[in-house]
Amino acid sequence: MVKAKMREQEGNRKREELLREFWFQVSNIPGGQKIKRCLQCGTCTGSCPVSQTMDLTPREVIALFRAGDMENILKSRTIWICASCYACTVRCPVGIKVTDILYALKRLAMENDLFPSRFPVHALSRSFVTLVNYFGRSYEPGLLILFYLRTNPIKLLGLFPLALKLWRHGRISFIPKRIKRKKDLQAMLKEAEIMEMIIPWELEPVRSH
């Protein structure tokens, strides 16, 4: 009996924490607070070119946030399917930055290690960051190789015909380009990492609606 209550409290605490973190991320987006004005009209979902493949539609994501259910949002495939086309953002009648909010959710999911199972889209972002932090520039063949090594190395073989075709047309370079002042860049990134952790305290408290 006591244990069940403790578990419930723990769950509540976790939920509050996720909400607070989310609210911080949202408040960083210019105009991010407009999420409170959602009418649940569904224009975002209707404009989304990939909503039919999502488990939660963009409108449902906002509805769940208002119900305080962050965990189910973060476990959904939705945030990882979004291709950042910004159609929802442009059409939202009250100006909610839906795409940027999905970015905030991606970051939250990354930080809390909450992913939908067998859906490794986040691995692409991780591979990308590894690469650009090192070279200063992206390198497409390297990105794909890193991504498949992390997710499904066998699929690398399936990539061969496409790679051959692109190579024949002169569209693959074998040497990654890099920037000149790599040391400066890395010093900057190190400092930015520290800056990332500084969170201003005067944040609006989260209220469940």
Partner: peptide
Amino acid sequence: EDWNCCGATMYMSIKETIALAFSAR
């Protein structure tokens, strides 16, 4: 001169401040 990657859509989904600094360079 000596430009670096903009961070694309992918850096933003990892860390915010770092992604902004990366692109702001």
